[in-house]
């Protein structure tokens, strides 16, 4: 499903060259659940961005579903991202001026789909995360846990095959964190969604099938 070979990511400014990732080789099979751990600033989020096609590697190749994406145009990469990948972020990234339902509809806006179908899919996703009664609320009217559930609903509204979660429980207390992790596990086990999750929390990482450790931009154990 996901294959990274000899991936390197270097950030360059006028004076400084920062190697964020180096010599990353990684394969994630369909239906896998991988946790990525490591200290702050080690390159975990950069790795997730590369897998999620939000960034391009300086060196090496990224393949998604057997296809190298380096030669893709922006339009094709965007379509692939829209149809294949769902994102969950630590800070939720909900649009405060939009109601919950409109936030969840967001990925579907970039597909050829009727308004009615979009609404139906977004409503189903919100039902799935237990927020059917909050469709018309604004994000500010929800708790942190509820906001992250809305973010998960948004990530799964397009029925992606891959879910990329960047510290999804990082801003939540343990009870809310467990609820959110329960949802992610559920998606992996019941729907076969491939999950790659960045976390600091060893307790949450235990729920993954395997853990990748990154240190100073290098993969130290698999």
């Amino acid at each position: 499903m996901i294959r990274l070979a000899g991936v390197e990511k270097v950030y360059r400014t006028d004076r400084i060259e920062t190697v964020a990732l180096s010599q990353i080789d990684l394969e994630v099979a369909a239906g896998d659940f991988v946790a990525v751990m490591g200290p702050s600033g080690c390159g975990k989020s950069t790795l997730l961005n590369l897998i999620g096609l939000l960034d391009a590697p300086t060196k090496g190749t990224v393949e998604l579903a057997g296809k190298p994406v380096a030669s893709y145009r922006d339009r094709d990469v965007s379509r692939l991202r829209n149809e294949t990948i769902g994102f969950v972020f630590q800070t939720f990234h909900l649009i405060p001026d939009l109601r919950v339902l409109d936030n969840v509809e967001l990925p579907l806006l970039y597909r050829k789909m009727s308004g009615a179908e979009r609404r139906a899919r977004a409503t189903r996703a919100l039902e799935r995360v237990g927020l059917a009664s909050r469709l018309q609320h604004f994000p500010s009217q929800l708790s942190g846990g509820q906001q992250q559930r809305v973010a998960i609903a948004r990530a799964i509204a397009g029925e992606p095959r891959i879910l990329l979660a960047d510290e999804p429980t990082g801003n939540l207390d343990s009870q809310m964190g467990d609820e959110v992790m329960g949802l992610i596990e559920d998606l992996n086990q019941k729907d076969g969604v491939t999950v790659v999750m960045v976390t600091h929390d060893p307790r949450q990482a235990e729920k993954a099938h395997r853990t990748i450790r990154i240190f100073d931009g290098r993969q130290v154990a698999c």
Binding site: S78, R81, N82, F87, H93, L106, Y110
Partner: peptide, 16 residues
């Protein structure tokens, strides 16, 4: 900016 990043992450192309 972050909203734009979010839209890009969820499938909006630069042209969108």
């Amino acid at each position: 900016t972050r909203e734009i990043g979010l839209r890009r992450a969820h499938g909006a192309a630069a042209a969108d």
